[in-house]
């Protein structure tokens, strides 16, 4: 895979004021890169700030601090509308809840074509219709669906509409915020297969946010694990699952139930105690093995290195 950086996130912070003196640090100093053509998985428990990260990257929130650099330009510096519009075309989002993210009063055709209209990508109504029909077919629906309303569709079909809408403006980067959590198991596989196929065909880059770790492992090239607004570990998907180093990652992995009764009978769950860390210095994000980063202190790094040296 090419190692060209598409998105660089530098020390991103998103703090929400919840009272006069209380601040929720939803995202607290994130730094990572997303390479062109890859799928970057972001996992963590609810409330760890993974959705906020996605929403801040696409500028649904204004960042408290830090930079998001997309294709060489800082997203959060753009002030004038034309610049923003150009950026919006490149970056799109697929939302979690296919029931809440489609306007119930709009026809599917208009939902999908909204971006096309805003960016004036077509010249005539016929062309617009043609493009919508193409998109519907790309995501496995048919063109008769264009004149219907969202309530006439099932959850999986709605998520397909959401994907068609995101694809409409031909973006290069898509943020998928738990795109399959609200769907049934059999439908989840359909949507994941579709997303993988679209990625191959259109050279897309994904930021895939989820809490379902087995699905994330399946779809992602690299995975970042978040805990209370911070990345605690970042590595290639296989590496992370084979050699989880941070105790939080280990506890998270040991908690996933697998569809294998034999494995389940022998599963040992690890707990995580945030106090088990070395507190002699402030932990930093360090590269313990090639391309495997862990939030740790120097002492802990030595320990991790020793522990995983032989394998």
């Amino acid at each position: 895979m090419s190692k060209e950086k598409l998105v660089e996130i530098k020390n991103l912070k998103q703090h929400f004021k919840t009272g006069r003196h209380s601040v929720v640090k939803a995202v607290d100093g994130l730094t990572f890169d997303i390479y062109k053509g890859e799928t970057f998985g972001l996992v963590g428990e609810s409330g760890c700030g993974k959705s906020t990260t996605g929403r801040t990257i696409i500028r649904l929130y204004d960042a408290t601090d830090g930079e998001v650099i997309f294709g060489g330009e800082n997203v959060h510096n753009k002030k004038n509308k034309a610049d923003l519009k150009k950026f919006n075309r490149e970056m799109q989002m697929i939302f979690q809840d296919p029931y809440a993210s489609l306007n119930p009063r709009m026809k599917v055709e208009d939902i999908i074509a909204e971006g096309i209209d805003i960016h004036e990508l077509v010249n005539s109504p016929q062309e617009r219709k043609k493009r919508v029909h193409e998109l519907l077919e790309t995501v496995g629906l048919n063109k008769e669906h264009a004149n219907r309303y969202p309530h006439e569709f099932s959850g999986g079909q709605r998520q397909r509409i959401g994907i068609a809408r995101a694809l409409a403006v031909k973006p290069s980067f898509i943020i998928a915020d738990e795109p399959i959590s609200a769907l049934d198991v059999s439908i989840q596989a359909q949507v994941v297969n579709l997303m993988k196929q679209l990625q191959r065909e259109n050279d897309l880059t994904y930021l895939f946010i989820a809490h379902d770790l087995s699905m994330v492992k399946y779809i992602s090239d690299r995975i970042g694990v978040m805990y209370f607004g911070k990345l605690v570990e970042l590595a290639d998907a296989d590496e992370l699952y084979k050699h989880p180093m941070h105790p939080y990652t280990q506890s998270l992995l040991s908690a996933i139930p697998l569809p294998d009764p034999d494995y389940e009978r022998n599963r040992v769950r690890k707990g995580y105690d945030p106090n088990q860390h070395d507190t002699s210095e402030e932990p930093e994000f360090r590269e313990v093995r090639p391309n495997h980063w862990v939030l740790c202190t120097t002492k802990e790094m030595e320990h991790y290195k020793k522990e995983h040296a032989t394998v």
């Binding site: 198991v185 059999s186 989840q188 596989a189 359909q190 297969n193 087995s214 699952y241 697998l258």
Partner: peptide
């Protein structure tokens, strides 16, 4: 088969998930 096949296992190869078509 469809239900079991549509769940990725942690050590599964990167082949396509077996999805049940339709609804």
């Amino acid at each position: 088969w469809g239900l079991l096949g549509s769940m990725p296992s942690l050590d599964s190869a990167d082949d396509e998930l077996y999805a049940i078509p339709g609804t």
